[in-house]
């Protein structure tokens, strides 16, 4: 794709076809577990008794839960896995858009999360991604590119929704 197509032309038909489609449905590679919960809490010095005090967790949340804001953590692929070829990316639709629109750099600008049933250690979650929109070309202080919105749905092993995330990304070429 030429630069003119990327930055002034229409969104390719293949990309338009992704809008509204459920893509990359997958099960988490491992069960929700407390080791990561401790690490997340430590990273922000979150001392809530829900994550550190079993008695409080039993009384208030009927057992251990994960911090709701960790919802996306359970799906980010590790940096290495045996037999994997290529680089596994979180939020694959975001990286597909970068490639198909020939926009080498990207950042996230907005993130909306709706939290439903609590996530608990031992849960095995499922997720999928839906591209909602791709903007016309825009120029910001970072460069020229396009904004896009991707929804990510999360359910537990019983099929119950545990949350939905919506990301706004901006893919761009740096100003030269």
């Amino acid at each position: 794709m030429s630069e003119a197509d990327t930055l002034t032309g229409e969104v390719p038909q293949e990309v338009r076809g992704w809008i509204g489609q459920k893509r990359y449905e997958q099960e988490g590679e491992f069960d929700v577990e407390r080791g990561y919960i401790y690490t997340s809490c430590a990273s922000v010095e979150n001392g809530s008794p829900l994550f550190w005090d079993e008695k409080a967790a039993n009384e208030i949340t009927s057992g251990w839960i994960a911090p709701p804001s960790m919802i996306s953590v359970w799906f980010r692929p590790h940096a290495f896995a045996p037999n994997r070829t290529g680089t596994a990316q979180p939020l694959q639709v975001h990286f597909d858009l970068k490639e198909k629109l020939d926009l080498p750099e990207a950042i996230m600008t907005d993130n909306t999360i709706v939290f439903r049933d609590p996530v608990r250690p031992g849960d095995r979650l499922r997720t999928w991604q839906v591209l909602r929109s791709v903007s016309e070309p825009k120029t910001t202080k970072l460069g020229t590119g396009r904004f896009w919105v991707i929804d990510v749905e999360y359910v537990n092993q019983k099929g119950e929704s545990v949350g939905t995330e919506s990301y706004t990304g901006f893919g761009y070429k740096r100003q030269t």
């Binding site: 997340s40 809490c41 990273s43 922000v44 010095e45 979150n46 809530s48 008794p49 829900l50 409080a56 208030i60 911090p67 709701p68 804001s69 960790m70 996306s72 953590v73 950042i107 996230m108 600008t109 907005d110 993130n111 909306t112 999360i113 709706v114 939290f115 990301y167």
Partner: peptide, 30 residues
């Protein structure tokens, strides 16, 4: 990064509410 900012916002809010506070929705713009 984005998800760690979410964790900071959660910690800030639940420091205020105590453990009975339950997040329903959060939107942030960086």
């Amino acid at each position: 990064n984005t998800p760690n900012q979410a964790a900071w916002f959660e910690r800030y809010l639940t420091d205020w509410t105590g453990p009975y506070g339950r997040l329903g929705r959060m939107k942030f713009r960086m």
